[in-house]
């Protein structure tokens, strides 16, 4: 049997991650992936120890998504080159599907993200999505946060078509959708409202010429102009990862969206909301719908979690404790009432 001595110490790990220590970041990611109860306790503490200011005010969380074969990994590689030239440090979380049959996965994205030089300011972790219903693994959010503690940019790359892939927009500041030239799918999804509109659209493989231009024109036609100054006007860009063209413009567009969020003070509030949603999902996983109801129900908890100035992980622990003590304190129905829970501790 394994002993707890094999689990890393969250306090020193958090300090090392903030210090941009690469092996420590790798160990932190392993810990966040670890399902054993002791590991989960330590992971919660690790997250709590990360500087909250950094997690909610700085850095940039970017989601890059699109259908298979659109060239997302090559585009990521090209973006990394631009960001590095601008002096930014980049972490990538590359999410690939798992085989529903074997549970295994082939994680081949790094292959296309490699450049000739080994750059210690770039960190790439591949993650299998492990058949999670709704698309993305539960690990994506905490892993992104830990990466954000050590890097300027965290890019989450996901695959899929339609609504599922856009799930990444519930975890990131800025969502970029990569469209494949001559594939009408994404346009159909956008038109039909099946797919939530991303913050940036980019048609890759501009080197294909007229087919790429045609797709770009069709995408532009589906986009509505911004209603007023408070609306973000979604740009549709074209780029070629193979030729390296349009990449600077894409990076500029991504940065412009971040500036827009900051200006409207939405960066922090968005992240707090994602955080709250993720915590709720975890509570739901652990205690089921009944447990969530017992703690006050989704809307109440969501408001409580996203409004709090404390670390939401702290709150999560409190909620967990509250539920367990209610449970252990007796099985009377009233103890699970929303009123009790609302009193707080």
């Amino acid at each position: 049997m394994l002993t707890s001595s094999r689990f890393p110490d969250p306090d020193s790990l958090a300090a090392a991650v903030v210090d941009k220590d690469r092996p420590a970041l790798a160990r932190a990611l392993n810990l966040l992936d670890d399902k054993r109860p002791e590991a989960r306790r330590r992971a919660a503490r690790l997250l709590r120890l990360l500087p909250q200011g950094r997690l909610y005010q700085s850095g940039h969380l970017i989601g890059l998504t699109g259908p298979p074969g659109a060239g997302k990994s090559s585009l990521t590689a090209a973006l990394i080159t631009v960001w590095r030239r601008r002096g930014l440090r980049v972490a990538v979380l590359a999410v690939d599907p798992s085989s529903p049959i074997s549970g295994g996965a082939l994680l081949g994205d790094r292959l296309r993200m490699l450049s000739g030089q080994v750059d210690s300011q770039v960190f790439i972790r591949s993650l299998a999505c492990r058949g999670e219903f709704g698309g993305l693994s539960a690990e994506v959010w905490p892993m992104s946060l830990v990466m954000l503690a050590a890097f300027d940019i965290v890019l989450v790359e996901t695959v899929g078509v339609g609504q599922k892939e856009i799930d990444v927009s519930k975890l990131t500041d800025t969502t970029v959708f990569v469209a494949q030239p001559a594939s009408g799918d994404s346009i159909q999804f956008l038109k039909a409202g099946i797919m939530e509109v991303p913050h940036l659209l980019v048609v890759n493989k501009a080197d294909l010429g007229s087919t790429a231009r045609k797709t770009l024109a069709e995408l532009r036609a589906t986009l509505k102009p911004a209603g007023n100054d408070n609306d973000w006007q979604v740009p549709a860009l074209s780029a070629s990862a193979a030729r390296g063209t349009g990449i600077d413009e894409l990076a500029d567009g991504i940065e412009a969206h971040r500036a827009w969020l900051l200006q409207r003070e939405q960066l922090g509030s968005r992240r707090r909301r994602f955080q709250a949603e993720w915590l709720l999902k975890r509570l739901d996983e652990e205690f089921g719908r009944f447990g969530v109801e017992a703690l006050g129900g989704f809307p109440t908890l969501l408001a409580e979690l996203s409004g709090s100035e404390d670390s939401p992980f702290e709150l999560y622990d409190q909620l967990q404790q509250r539920f367990l003590s209610n449970w252990q304190g007796g099985l009377g129905g009233s103890r699970f009432g929303a009123k009790d829970v609302g009193d707080g501790e």
């Binding site: 295994g104 082939l106 994680l107 081949g108 790094r110 292959l111 299998a128």
Partner: peptide
């Protein structure tokens, strides 16, 4: 790589 995926490993293949 393919076989390992088939028996349930998560395989990072770097080429």
């Amino acid at each position: 790589a393919v076989k390992a995926r088939d028996v349930g490993f998560e395989v990072v293949y770097e080429g």
